[in-house]
Design a protein around this nucleic acid. Structure first.
Length: 303
DNA sequence: ACCCAGGATGGAA
DNA sequence: TTCCATCATGGG
């Protein structure tokens, strides 16, 4: 349970301290689940909803700062998932040597709870892109189509992620201008379906995992992987397990040595081996495989 | 110059 | 079912 100590000593600024144990901001904000966080010095700057936020790690706490005074901080503690009991989640992981190794290597890695539309749009744009490029595309999309948000005086301008309506009004050429290439028509088509009201992302939370997944996959540019990303990073579905090239590779190496399991076989294994917190397990495996292990491989001359 | 990246899609085998 | 080419773009 996080304790909040808000203060607004400085006019036009506001700050709060969240007491939280075992929360690694560096890993969490830089693990390919959200794309708008930038590390400036020791702090992370980003946009949550329509608010600019600066986050800093302290001893047993996270210090948050906004540009304008705010009355409540639940929007941020919810986004950061401060109430999640990470120790209990990790304790329920299977006694799997490789997974436990990933947990030790990525201590304090968490899952965020993002806005469904921003998450969906970001991942539609993510296909066959490196995380660095996804960040660039989302940045341009926000700068060109997003509404300006309040920032501290002297700070360069920052824009919110564009609304569904704004993206739906855009042209394909306009979206391609953000360097998203062949993903532009997918994003545009999905935005227009959502803007028409034929699909409400907020209702997904009331559905079962399978039903919510089916609905997401019906959207243009959304397949099994991206649907699972949205269900895990924006929805209350901790069993969601995105399988991208990194996860596919590491699962094959570690659990099917010498084999070539189909996605169907993989899904069966994932369901029974990693439950009930398979989504968390996935994030540890992903980050461990992508950053830690890849870096080690480079340094030791392999590859 | 080559290969790869938090993939999805439509069509062929 | 599974396999395959195609789609843009930038990084290493």
């Amino acid at each position: 349970m996080s304790v909040i100590h808000p203060s607004c000593a400085t006019p036009g600024a506001c700050q709060a301290v969240f007491t939280v144990a075992n929360y690694n901001l560096d890993l969490t904000l830089n693990s390919g689940q959200a794309f708008r966080w930038r590390k400036i010095g020791q702090a992370w700057e980003g946009v949550v909803g329509s608010r600019w936020v600066r986050l800093r790690s302290a001893a047993g706490s996270i210090v948050a700062e906004t540009a304008e005074p705010v009355n409540r901080w639940d929007w941020l503690s919810h986004y950061l998932q401060l109430e999640a009991d990470l120790a209990a989640i990790l304790a329920a992981f299977p006694p799997d040597p490789f997974l436990q190794q990933a947990v030790r290597a990525c201590a304090g890695l968490r899952l965020l709870r993002q806005d469904p539309w921003e998450c969906l749009a970001s991942f539609i744009v993510s296909s066959t892109k490196q995380i660095r490029q996804i960040e660039q595309i989302v940045e341009q999309l926000s700068r060109r189509l997003g509404a300006p948000v309040a920032v501290p005086s002297g700070h360069p301008p920052v824009h919110a992620f564009p609304t569904v309506q704004r993206v739906a009004q855009a042209t394909e050429t306009e979206l391609r201008g953000c360097k998203m290439g062949f993903r532009a028509p997918h994003l545009l088509a999905t935005a227009r379906i959502l803007a028409q009201g034929g699909f409400c992302l907020d209702t997904l939370a009331h559905l079962s995992y399978e039903e919510a997944r089916e609905r997401l996959i019906a959207l243009p540019g959304v397949g099994d992987k991206i649907a699972n990303c949205v269900l895990l990073f924006a929805g209350p579905f901790p069993e969601a397990f995105p399988v991208d090239v990194w996860i596919h590779r590491v699962l094959q190496e570690q659990y099917f040595p010498g084999g070539h399991p189909s996605l169907r076989v993989l899904r069966q294994f994932i369901r029974e081996h990693f439950r009930p917190w398979s989504g968390y397990a996935q994030q540890y495996l992903f980050h461990y495989a992508r950053v830690i292990k890849a870096r080690g491989a480079r340094q030791s001359g392999r590859h």
